[in-house]
Design a protein around this nucleic acid. Structure first.
Lengths: 198, 198
DNA sequence: AGGGTCGTGTGAACGATGTCAACATCGATG
DNA sequence: CATCGATGTTGACATCGTTCACACGACCCT
């Protein structure tokens, strides 16, 4: 956006990632183009290759990392907002449920970023790891006595699959046009299933 | 592939869809290009636009329809293979479980086609409707007394989300490189959750 | 049989994409 | 102050989706 006065940009890499995040936010992966973004920053396309050696894919991974970090932060936020009660078991359950709701909430807010996050992933990062957040929720369930230790293996995977699948279906999938009330109902129904079935 | 002797191709539309299916099967959506496919058939690119007025997107939808039909057929096949017992309830449960397993099975076999099926969907078709198959499994569960009528709303959605999400995570997602035994364990664990939680 | 019509395929062109190699410029370091 | 490495530019290439004017030919109608 902002035209540039100096020959060197200053921090082109960060600027490209920011622009990529903005583009992905509206328009999804298809809107993230190296030429377009560079032009938008008043910079030639090939300049980007200095900062993303493997080209577009590298940039998409970087954008995806931002998206994953934001998602993880949203999960942590919603979990932290759960008002503690006297019962550790119901607290753990509520936090677990809040994380699932927050997942869908974020994805509905930022479907484009979610798309990039899914499609360009090079493994877990400590500060951008939504799955890690979910795993600690599961650990809480175990230590609160809600979930049996024997049932812990793959419990996080199963829960993740349910919530992730729902998010995909609701944004890119056939449930795209579900009205908000039916959407919420589907979310709660799915969380019911997970909570009862884990 | 096969060069053509006559000026007219005969059935270019079907040939393009076939080639698109083959290309998507290895290489996913990115491998489905109008120019490449047309050239492969010894035909100019613009010829394709006679049969797919909206261009590439139309072709991708057609390929997706094939993929959805095959998936639905696979589900129906695996359901039909369940040996009936004396108990209608356990039969319904087994068929339901078989459908979930079949879903993952197919997606692992044809991740590229699954990708196209997900990303280019213009609504349910009677002969290519995996969700419809799942819905009738749920209906079976209800009529067999396994699932309470009151819990039927959105039950299919929740179950679908879990299985779909798992399939996505196992093919395009972070669970991509899970070894087969751990993969199977995750599938069974997820089906356990769905069955117990629905 | 002859002639017209409409479905189908061709050729060339346009703009946009990702990518690369050769060159230009700046800032920091000796 | 000179040099050198990091950073940005220019220009080019192949490929992509798409469109338009044109060419072919199978079929129908008289």
């Amino acid at each position: 956006m902002a035209a540039r006065t100096t020959y060197h940009h200053g921090d082109l890499k960060a600027a490209l990632v920011d622009a990529g995040v903005a583009a992905a936010s509206e328009g999804g992966e298809a809107a993230v183009g190296l030429n377009r973004l560079a032009a938008g920053l008043g910079v030639s396309a090939s300049a980007a290759y200095r900062h993303f050696p493997e080209g577009l894919e590298d940039l998409l991974v970087a954008v995806g990392n931002v998206a994953r970090r934001r998602l993880a932060e949203r999960l942590a936020l919603r979990i932290s907002e759960v008002a503690p009660s006297q019962d550790a078991a119901t607290d753990a359950r509520r936090r677990f449920r809040a994380s699932g709701r927050a997942y869908v909430e974020y994805v509905l807010e930022e479907p484009g970023l979610f798309q990039v996050a899914n499609r360009h992933d090079r493994g877990r990062l400590p500060d951008a790891d939504p799955f890690g957040v979910l795993e600690s929720c599961i650990a809480d369930l175990v230590s609160a006595g809600v979930l049996d230790e024997a049932r812990r293996p793959d419990a996080a995977t199963a829960a993740w699959a349910a919530v992730h699948g729902l998010a995909v279906l609701l944004t890119e999938g056939p449930l795209r046009r579900l009205p908000p009330d039916r959407r919420d109902r589907a979310v709660e129904r799915t969380l019911d299933m997970v909570e009862a079935g884990l």
